[in-house]
Every structure is written in C-alpha cells, then in structure tokens.
Design a protein around this nucleic acid. Structure first.
Lengths: 197, 197
DNA sequence: ATCAATGCTTACTGATCGGTACACTTAGTT
DNA sequence: AACTAAGTGTACCGATCAGTAAGCATTGAT
C-alpha cells in the first residue's frame, strides 16, 4: 500500500479548511492548494461533506493522540498529568499556525443537530472529556478516592476552563488563556480537597 | 421617523444568520425569509459584510443590555451579581432558540485578523469582559479590596468558565453547563478569599 | 506484453453566489 | 397636482459553487 493520494488529500485539506473555514473553501481552491485533481477527489469522496468528515476524523485522531501523549510525557502522577493538560493546552496555543479548535469552528458552520458533521464534532469533545475524566478518576482526596459523581463534576468544571481558554485564545481576548486556565484549575482542585496540590 | 425598513431588515437578518450561519446564508435567502427586496437591502448596505456588521452591532447591544439588566434584576450586591452572571447565562441557554454565541460563531467563519467582522467579535467579548470586571472590582476579600491585578486575573478566570459553558452547551456536551460554571465560579471566589460566599 | 487501477487535464453542467439595472408603485410633502 | 423618497419585482451580470464526463498518461501486477 502506497501512502496513497487519499491520505495526502485529507492531510492537505485539513490545513486549508483549518485556516480558511469549511464553507468558505471551495473544491476548486482545494485543487489549487493541494495540486490534486478534482476527479481524484471525487473518486475518493462522494461529496464535499464526506471529505470534511474524513478531515475531522483525521484531526480527531491527530489531536487526541498528540495531546495526551504530551500529557504523559510531562507527568506520570494523576495530579501532575491533570495540570499538564493545561500546559499542553498552552503549547498548542503557542504553535504558530494555531487557529482555534477545528471542531468548535465546524460546529459553528454546521449547526443542524442531525448533521453528521455536527455530530462528529460533539463526538470529539466527548472523547476528549472522557480522556480527562480518566485522569481525574485516579486522583485522591484527603479522605481517599473521589466518588464517581464528584469526579465527573470536577472534570466538567475543568473542561469548561479548557474550552473557554480555546475560544478566548482564538479570539485574542486572553493572550495567556492556557496559563490562566491552569491557575483556575489548581483552585478547583484545591476546592475539591485533592491531595498534594 | 418611521421604524424604517433598515432596522426591520437587520433584526430579521439577525435571526436568519444566527440559526443558519453567515456564509451559508445567501442574500436571496434573506429576501425570501424577510420579504424585503434585494434592491432595498443594497440601498441600506453596500455589501453583505456591511449588513453582517450591522447585525453584529445590534446583537452586541441587545445581548449586553439584556444580560446585565437581568443581572441587576437578580441581585444588588457585587457578590450576588457575580453569581447572577451565571444564572443569567443559564437563562440564556434555556431560551428555545439558543444556538450558541453569535460572535464565537462569526469569528469561526471570518478568522482573518484584519477582517472587520472578526474584530467586531473580539470587541464584543472585550466589552462583556469589562462589564464583568467592573463587578469584580467591587468585591471585597477578608483583608479589604481586591488589588487591581487580582481582580483582573479573577475576572479572566471567571470568563473562561463563561465562554467554555457557551460552547459546551452549544455542542450539547454539557447540558447543565451554566449551573456547573456557577459552581466552579463559587470555588474560584472562595479560593480568592472573597467575603460571604 | 498486457491489463487494470489510479491519477491527470480539460471542459462542462445547472445552481447559486454577491451585486446591479431598470421600470414601476406607493406614500408623504409642499 | 407635482415632486420626492423609499419601497417593489424582475431580470440580469460575471463569478463561483458542488459535482460530472471523456480521454489520456503513468504505474504495478500478472
């Protein structure tokens, strides 16, 4: 199996969609920017929406893998990893081509509840959430393990910080959103009696 | 001065853009949905972008006025108003036509840093931020007034929660995002030694 | 050597895009 | 009654939209 034009197309389309938006990017622009012929594109994908779905699939995989691999590189303990989540967030923000979260943006353009694109966006967020939740579940309070409900509530709160940081960074309202989110996260952990923070 | 077709157009266009997206909504669709002729539209606005800017201007005014009027209705003390911010947020989410934040969505479609639309979106967020900051500045800790830096940092943290709640509610990842943000806000206030919370 | 798969180029479809031209109607002012 | 401002409907502009058709070049497997 060759690396195949298909993968090449999805990778390049990802960049263009990310920087230029989905609706605003026409197929002809993709031809121009990727050098791949339109005929080839439509041999691999029946519609533009199918291509977008493939792009989002790739992005989901890329981002989740990179994100939590970095988290594991930065820390081993549950508490350390939880704080590292926000360090990696800040790393993401510092990448020169950072342009917000592709899934938040895609769900802004495809808002219809039964649109497959919209649903794939929510799916990504839920997967991210569960990965954070997994770390939170391993945390310990001064009186032992967190209860399941407390762990989920804490995760939802931390997730609010994370998503807020993404949009405020993208909108250039808060330049140090990642660091600020981390500080707030520390407060939330302390408020929940997490050991060692 | 009659209520004027212009205002009517902007109001109706707001609804359509909000539910349907900016790029995805064509001028012909606006004609159909508003009943206003295209000739009239282009007599009031030179381009579609100008119309969008007017729509965002109206939305900014509408939302900020409504939001902080509700906050003042719900509480009088600074602390009460700060918590009320998240109650009003939840009220917003419960409105049947809630479809996320128009400015987050617009800045997702118009990402270019020097696009007037993008800049108007960031401006709105900054105005919202300053209104919250004004409330925070009136808070007192156990040792008196907050320092200016602490007040701003606390506001930025609270703002992360607010924006995160908006996107996670819009993406149907967290159904009770407003309430959850409020709980997290309480923790952050306590962590900063705010009196009475 | 042949065959099939894959990709390319070019040209095209009908629909829609943002925006304009023009002739007409309506209402308010003087 | 005459004029003006503001609205309408219709038809149109060139450009672009998503998607298709046909023919040729390249390549790898048999």
């Amino acid at each position: 199996m060759r690396p195949s034009k298909r993968d090449e197309l999805v990778q390049e389309a990802l960049k263009v969609f990310y920087q230029n938006g989905f609706t605003a990017t026409g197929m002809d622009m993709l031809v121009k920017k990727t050098g791949i012929s339109k005929t080839s594109m439509y041999k691999h994908f029946r519609t533009k929406d199918d291509l977008i779905l493939a792009v989002l699939r790739l992005r989901d995989e890329q981002l989740r893998n990179w994100f939590f691999r970095r988290v594991e590189e930065l820390a081993t303990s549950p508490l350390g990893q939880l704080l590292a989540v926000f360090d990696v967030l800040e790393e993401w923000f510092q990448q020169p081509d950072f342009q917000g979260c592709m899934f938040i943006k895609a769900s802004s353009e495809f808002q219809c509840v039964d649109d497959p694109i919209y649903n794939q966006c929510t799916e990504h967020k839920k997967l991210m959430f569960n990965s954070v939740l997994k770390i939170v579940r391993e945390l310990e309070t001064n009186s032992g393990k967190l209860s399941s409900e407390i762990a989920e509530k804490l995760t939802r709160q931390l997730f609010l910080l994370k998503e807020g940081a993404i949009v405020l960074k993208h909108m250039r309202v808060n330049g140090s959103a990642g660091l600020e989110a981390k500080e707030a996260a520390v407060s939330l952990l302390q408020a929940n009696g997490i050991r060692g923070v």
